[in-house]
Design a protein around this nucleic acid. Structure first.
Lengths: 188, 188
DNA sequence: CCGTAAACATACATTGTGTTCAATAACATA
DNA sequence: TATGTTATTGAACACAATGTATGTTTACGG
């Protein structure tokens, strides 16, 4: 048999470099002029990358964004091994946001688009609804109002995070976690 | 004296017609393909209005939108003469949304942009913060957290409305008002 | 009916988009 | 280090939307 050992798909360094250049340029441009105003032309200019190179990797700025914000989503609340409660790990969320505040502000701040924010909110709503279902009847109307409640609560929690970021994180993650759990507790 | 009675600045019928054509076309286009996708070209095509005519009245689609959504904002919660509480008149809000559901969905639904939604949320947050200030200390940190709470609550209430619209208003305005006031009560 | 002003068609320069292609440079690996 | 592979480049292209300008036509209000 031939060498089947090296199955690790080593990513070409050029690709890593290009993607990082594009992503960093995008983040900075968002903070400069706001998500909507940033064009692909802006990005490739600032990154100093050929036009065709951009389209070799992404097909839009949305895709360039969502490429890297999936990691965020996962890291934030999908797998929280240490937490016994299977709810949302707000402390990890706030700590992670704080230690990557530059990117976090670009993605979730007021200059950023609503794409990532809404995605985060939707994911939260899904989790919350699951929790709510456990503690309630199964009537059709009741279930619908329950999902509205989940959506509203997720919106509140997301807003709390984005305000905190936009205000340059004036409180410690621990305090924000406490406040978040308070809000969550009022509806559970 | 001459006739000073008719001080009403009668708006040229052509202007009214043009603006209505553009606005209606815009609303329908939003519901068809989503706010971001709609171009000015689309709007003037569907409205069957000359390109230069559009720019004679508006300088962007955002302005075309905000032109008419100010009325909405006012009608919703700025002046509520009949309500004794100087809070937010949710019943008027939901009733108004229901009786103009086509426009309301275009402006606040998931196909609509986040421009109007965020504006509504901000206005709510402002009102809520004022209420909160009355019932709390004036410490600097305390005030800041209070404003976060106001923002979060406003986000929740706004989300409740938009979900209700997107779900084709499955409950009566009275019930939604009750739920809204419940949410508000938990933080006041 | 008439003077005014809105709407019109048209043209134009500008900018961004998305794709193609041959030439070049950087890469992984042997 | 040599070699085959692959990412990147720059240029060109067609296309669509933007925003502005102009002279003409149309419809309004008085």
């Amino acid at each position: 048999m031939k060498k089947e050992i090296k199955k690790v798909p080593v990513v070409d360094r050029r690709i890593q470099r290009t993607k990082k250049l594009l992503f960093d340029a995008f983040m900075n441009l968002i903070l400069e002029k706001g998500y909507e105003e940033v064009t692909i032309q802006d990005i490739i200019d600032k990154a100093n990358v050929g036009r065709s190179t951009f389209y070799a990797h992404f097909e839009s700025k949305e895709q360039l964004l969502s490429n890297s914000h999936q990691d965020l989503g996962k890291l934030l609340f999908s797998v929280n091994n240490h937490s016994k409660i299977e709810g949302i790990d707000f402390l990890s969320l706030y700590n992670h946001a704080k230690s990557h505040s530059h990117v976090a502000k670009a993605m979730l701040g007021k200059k950023g688009g609503d794409l990532v924010i809404n995605h985060l909110r939707d994911a939260m709503a899904y989790k919350i609804l699951n929790e709510l279902k456990k503690k309630s009847g199964k009537g059709k109307a009741e279930l619908k109002m329950l999902s509205f409640t989940a959506e509203a609560t997720a919106a509140a929690l997301t807003r709390l995070l984005t305000c905190w970021l936009d205000d340059d994180m004036p409180f410690e993650p621990e305090l924000m976690t406490e406040r978040s759990n308070q809000i969550l507790a009022t509806i559970l």
